[in-house]
Design a protein around this nucleic acid. Structure first.
Lengths: 196, 196
DNA sequence: AAAAGAAATGAATGAATGTTCATGGTTTTT
DNA sequence: AAAAACCATGAACATTCATTCATTTCTTTT
């Protein structure tokens, strides 16, 4: 029973993801989500408080999963550069794996003021990861000392998101994962100490 | 009369910009826009086809103005680096000057599939400007030959947009224009030929 | 200043859709 | 197998708004 509830719950979440990604949150209707999940409209309200709550729980769930993977990816690196490389590769690969999530994060999240705390959380966690990496790089001498970390980390996140955005616009027609290394190279060549 | 129509038209456009920026397109109502412009609801329909059309014309108008300035800024530079510097400074300053526009471009535009052609236009124009600059830099030897222009230009745009996004999230509390030079420096140090 | 034309009004309309709840079905318990 | 507890249904409800248009107000013409 717990499991069957869980199953239906996730079925609805998934359907919601697909419908939100296709039509956008506001144009998506409860009926569309219910139909795609193969349940009646009213059933959604057994599992979710309201339409907003569906999106909220979708984002929470995805955020959790992805962020755990990102943390693991970073922990897997030794020096600052390999951590950065792992983080960005993980980011690109996860978004490529789940295109609905990519669309929702890229297109919708900025739009929703009510869920601002959620956005802030995921962005903040990501930016904090980047801060740590950059600071480590400065300590071990692989990154310039005169970097303004606050700017650099936003710079990196913005660039990665821009690349994802473009990929989404192209309907995911090319491989996103392969952009990780050129992207980091491009970035590192700017950050790396001239002589090292 | 032509002028008074023009005045009211722009009054409505401005009000729409403020209301869209504050509430987002879907939560913004015709009544709010009308009230802010000091006209009756029905009056909007003398100047615009419908709600979508208001946003469309807002974006068209702003796009035109900003893009002319960006073109002029680029034309004002001599070498690739100064052109890039001028472009990015112009971008940041214009968005800072008109925060409503900044919010709408950053938060709303990605969301609106119907206006995709519009977005594509402004993004494409911007990316084309960047392409030209990078190619010129490669020709005159100030930028590396092995750059993948398609990636670099999205990298730059993404980074700039990321910085603007952060500024918008902070409710425009700090000066955006001053970030132009550090941003370009950060970027150039990566792009510039190691020896030059 | 009267008439004609243009511009503006805002209450009424109608469509869209998030949410509820009385009803019916299914599973579990006794 | 009857009763109880639980789950699911989907038609009906209520609200929200974009849009319209009959009426009024303002401007121009003669």
């Amino acid at each position: 029973m717990q499991k069957s509830k869980s199953q239906k719950y996730h079925k609805i979440l998934n359907s919601a993801g697909a419908v939100f990604a296709e039509h956008g949150f506001y144009k998506a209707t409860i009926s569309q989500i219910a139909a795609r999940a193969g349940v009646a409209d009213g059933t959604l309200y057994l599992y979710f408080k309201n339409k907003d709550d569906i999106l909220y729980q979708y984002l929470s769930f995805k955020t959790d999963v992805v962020f755990k993977k990102m943390n693991a990816a970073v922990a897997n690196g030794t020096d600052a550069e390999s951590k950065l490389r792992n983080l960005i590769r993980c980011h690109l690969e996860e978004f490529q794996r789940d295109q609905n999530m990519a669309i929702i994060f890229q297109s919708e999240v900025r739009y929703l003021r009510d869920i601002e705390s959620q956005i802030k959380n995921i962005s903040k966690m990501y930016l904090d990861l980047l801060s740590d990496i950059i600071e480590q790089g400065q300590i071990d001498g692989s990154m310039r000392q005169d970097l303004f970390v606050g700017l650099v980390k936003r710079f990196i996140l913005g660039a990665v998101e821009g690349v994802i955005s473009t990929w989404v616009s192209a309907h995911g027609r090319y491989d996103l994962g392969t952009m990780a290394d050129p992207l980091v190279d491009l970035f590192m060549t700017g950050v790396r100490e001239a002589g090292s």
